[in-house]
């Protein structure tokens, strides 16, 4: 059951989007997300949704994967939707019952927020689906490099991220093993109330933490043995290159953004 967890959820492929420079992908995704919050008209939303849909088609990511990334946010969507409908009371009332009143503005707000959140999640998932975790951290390191001027430990941060990603599968496997071992000693992990279940986790969490610390210590030692001393003067095995494809992707995104913003000024009610 633990094996089913996917973090980093990279979906291997060779599409145009997979081959883009990860830095470009990160920046464009960020532009797209910011853009979502400038949209006020449904025409603009339509353009953004279609654009994202086309990107998914180009990347050859199946619809199933989009739905899977959206599943965890369904409760948040419902919750914010209800709050928006209840607390935005301006404009024409649509429905009134006692102290509960729902206005057209409220419904409008709820729908707009839902579209924004869905697009936001779908867009950032597209980034992680098409970019391997390693190139993501590489790109983040490169993008944050200017912060070095203010002594921000960019390289160390990126190294921490890649190590964390590297150890997720290891720790999942370890958890599996410890769970089996404790089950073999009669640990009951599947029944009882919340408190009992939380207590039953102790025999799993303690060995897991201990082994995580042990691994961390061993890794640190092994890195030091190989003279690792931070990012100073360190060269990279994989250099990031921007090409014509990246320029094309950037241009398309800018054009789409322009269209979406222009849609705000269209003399249309929606």
């Amino acid at each position: 059951m633990l094996r089913d967890i996917t973090i980093g959820q990279y979906f291997p492929g060779h599409s145009f989007l997979h081959r883009l420079d990860p830095r470009v992908k990160i920046v464009l995704t960020m532009i797209y997300i910011v853009l979502l919050f400038f949209v006020h008209k449904y025409v603009g939303f339509a353009i953004s949704v279609v654009f994202l849909g086309v990107c998914y088609v180009i990347a050859k990511i199946p619809l199933k994967m989009i739905l899977r990334s959206l599943k965890p946010i369904v409760p948040i969507l419902i919750f914010t939707g209800i709050l928006n409908m209840l607390f935005v009371n301006t404009g024409e009332p649509f429905f009134k019952w006692g102290i509960i009143s729902i206005s057209w503005d409220g419904i409008n707000m709820a729908v707009v927020m839902a579209i924004r959140v869905v697009c936001l999640i779908a867009a950032s998932s597209l980034l992680t689906y098409t970019t391997s975790p390693i190139s993501l951290t590489d790109a983040i390191e490169r993008l944050l490099k200017p912060l070095k001027v203010i002594k921000f430990p960019v390289h160390e941060l990126a190294m921490m991220m890649s190590i964390a990603l590297r150890f997720i599968p290891t720790l999942v496997e370890e958890t599996d093993k410890i769970m089996s071992a404790q089950k073999a000693r009669g640990a009951d992990l599947e029944s009882g109330g919340l408190l009992q279940r939380a207590k039953a986790l102790v025999p799993i969490l303690i060995p897991l933490f201990i082994s995580a610390f042990r691994r961390a210590e061993e890794l640190a030692l092994a890195m030091e043995c190989r003279c690792y001393h931070g990012g100073e003067g360190r060269t990279r095995m994989r250099q990031l290159h921007m090409g014509a494809g990246d320029a094309i992707a950037a241009c398309i995104t800018v054009v789409v953004s322009g269209a979406v913003i222009a849609a705000n000024f269209l003399p249309l009610p929606w």
Partner: peptide, 27 residues
């Protein structure tokens, strides 16, 4: 599971209690 006891490979990584006594008493 009580009838068929299984000791895994490298079983020392499953120890978790404060004392040896308590750990042996877990089963």
């Amino acid at each position: 599971r009580f009838d068929v006891g299984l000791v895994f490979q490298y079983p020392e990584y499953q120890l978790f209690e404060e004392t040896v006594y308590k750990d042996i008493a877990f089963g």
